[in-house]
Simulated scan of single mutants.
Amino acid sequence: MRHDIVRIHHVGHVVDDMAAALALYRRLGFVVPPPSYPAMARQEGAEPEPFGAANTHADFLGNFLELATRVREGDHIPADAKLVPLQAPADVLPKLVERIATTSASLAVCLERFEGLHILMFSSPDIDAVATRLTASGIGHGGVNTVRRPVETETGTVVETVRYLEIDTRPGSVAEGRVGVAAELDSHIQGARQSDHPNGAVDLVEAVLCVADSELAAAQARYQDYLDRPIRTDGPAQVFDLDNARLTLVPESGLATLLPGEQPAALPALVAYTVAVRDIAATQNLLRDNGIPLRRTASGDPFVPSANALGTAIIFREALPPEHATVRGTWPK
């Protein structure tokens, strides 16, 4: 059966201090470029100043990890940050500023809940088909949005087209955060961004959502509608298998079994994500050499506790060769 949602497009780690987040992710062995900050002059003739929301990515070939923060006056801006002055026609600029301000306000709301994962976007080869299916199923969404932005590559500037939809955009409707679907990344553009991460990370392969025990059935039903995929039981968790990736739903009572020592900061909450790495032993050595504490999941994968990773547990799992690729990390039998 051909599915219209195939993998995880990205997760968003919302942080309070971008400089601290950059330092952490680089110690974790990710290549994280300098963050981009939109900038505007507060008065005519003044230098542009950062405002709104800032972000950066740790990129893989088919997906990425996003670091995002809201910008407050007086915030410490990383020394290597890229200020991006807003340039748009006079009739468009107010809408652009409003959109950035809305994003910043949304990030502030996330941080009021907790610092950690608040964004989960799935990837689709046919986002228009996803929109049609969701509408037919009675699932609210904001429609397919299209954004075009210039991207610098080794061969010059190209225009990247980003198409996405957000599921049920009413406040509080998706309490775990911003959930949606994006068109698959352009492999040529993303290939230019892809980095050789020192920790060996090559793919984003799992997101873990923790819900109250009494809400597990409702969460299962929601995501079954979103993903149009069957669900299976795996120990204390319920799992949606995607193409070499997975979404794991775990009740609060099972979280400490799945991820020993972890407790959700709120419910529901995206509590962890998993990256596949080329050589798990080398990854563990790098993390230990950098002073990063590790625990083990129920299935034996090393993970960085959320207390040491700005509110999200980060799981590392050895990638299988392509000819043997499948979803790993299941509950031990």
Rank of each mutant, 00 (worst) to 15 (best):
A23I: 06
A23K: 11
L24S: 01
L24E: 00
L24N: 00
Y25S: 02
Y25F: 15
Y25T: 01
R26P: 00
L28V: 04
L28K: 02
G29I: 07
F30L: 10
F30S: 01
V31T: 14
P34I: 13
P35C: 08
P38I: 06
M40C: 08
Q43L: 15
Q43P: 03
G45T: 13
G45K: 14
G45S: 13
A46F: 15
A46M: 15
E47D: 14
E47S: 15
E47K: 15
E49W: 05
P50G: 10
P50N: 14
P50W: 06
G52A: 12
A53I: 07
A53K: 04
T56K: 04
T56Y: 03
T56W: 05
H57A: 12
A58E: 02
F60C: 00
L61M: 11
L61V: 05
G62W: 02
N63R: 03
F64C: 05
F64K: 02
F64M: 09
E66S: 12
L67F: 08
L67K: 02
T69K: 04
T69V: 07
T69I: 04
R70E: 07
V71C: 04
V71T: 05
G74C: 11
D75R: 13
D75A: 09
H76M: 11
H76F: 08
P78G: 05
A79H: 13
A79P: 02
A79I: 11
